[in-house]
């Protein structure tokens, strides 16, 4: 049987927010190590990779590996019924065709349970190659969300250009052109406010705004975001999830014709 207990169910609400714009359904692979999800969007332009380690949960039991095919709109309906401070327990029997979500209020005076049908998804498991990235940029996640939102007013694409000096985000279209430059921060009081760049080689790549904006739905999960870039390989946008693990988005660059 599978059972996972989470004292603050807001984390799962945020995870769902972070994936439901890109994916209609997904398989949650549960094992002793934790819960993993890996899926490409319908157009095979982006991939979501979620890893929640079992030791992050308040209680975790997984006797046999279990793949739960879940319609994310259905799961969103159920998670909307939970209060942010509710204690969540997810339960499924081995080989079950349903999964149960139980929400308990902090004072345990209200207990709700929701049974959700699982769906059969024939999803491929993909191996993500180890890549040495030419540039790794760490920056406040709110700043990245702001930049993506601002630049998407100017064009469908954002050019990200990283050098030792800093990172430049650019967009151009009918209105005109926009450039936002961020330098590495010299001194910051809080680590989460820092912009840091590790650069082996300068890189310039072009990406679709629409996907970058979808990735920023994960902003609530982490104060920092990490962008990893190399020429001709997908961009990786990573948000750490506290004690649990991470959500990573891979995005294929646009190619010059």
């Amino acid at each position: 049987m599978f059972e996972a207990r989470l004292v603050q169910c807001s984390m799962l609400k945020k995870v769902l927010e972070a994936i439901k714009e890109l994916l209609n359904e997904a398989t949650f692979d549960c094992s002793d190590a934790g819960i993993q999800l890996q899926a490409m969007d319908n157009s095979h332009v982006s991939l979501v990779s979620l890893n929640l380690r079992s030791d992050g949960f308040d209680k975790y039991r997984c006797d046999r590996n279990l793949s739960m095919g879940i319609n994310l709109a259905s799961m969103t309906k159920i998670m909307k019924c939970a209060g942010n401070d509710d204690v969540l327990t997810i339960k499924a029997q081995d080989n079950a065709d349903n999964v149960m979500f139980m929400f308990e209020s902090q004072n345990q005076e209200k207990v709700s349970d929701y049974d959700m049908k699982l769906i059969n998804l024939d999803q491929e498991h993909l191996g993500i190659p180890e890549t040495d990235y030419s540039c790794i940029i760490k920056m406040p996640s709110g700043e990245f969300a702001r930049i993506c939102r601002d630049l998407s007013q100017f064009g469908e694409s954002v050019v990200i250009s990283c050098t030792k000096e800093g990172v430049k985000f650019s967009a151009a279209g009918d209105v005109g052109a926009a450039n936002i430059k961020l330098a590495q921060t010299a001194n910051v009081d809080k680590e989460e406010e820092a912009v840091t760049i590790e650069m082996q080689e300068p890189v310039t790549l072009t990406f679709a705004c629409r996907y970058l904006n979808s990735f920023t739905k994960a902003t609530a999960l982490s104060p920092q975001v990490q962008l990893s870039m190399s020429a001709d390989v997908p961009l990786v946008v990573e948000y750490k999830i506290g004690d649990f693990g991470h959500i990573r988005y891979y995005l294929a660059p646009k190619i010059e014709e």
Binding site: E124, A252, I255
Partner: peptide, 14 residues
């Protein structure tokens, strides 16, 4: 102008 690339080919099906 540029076209949107795809991820097929970058990831290996296990």
């Amino acid at each position: 102008s540029c076209t949107q690339g795809r991820l097929d080919g970058f990831f290996k099906v296990l």
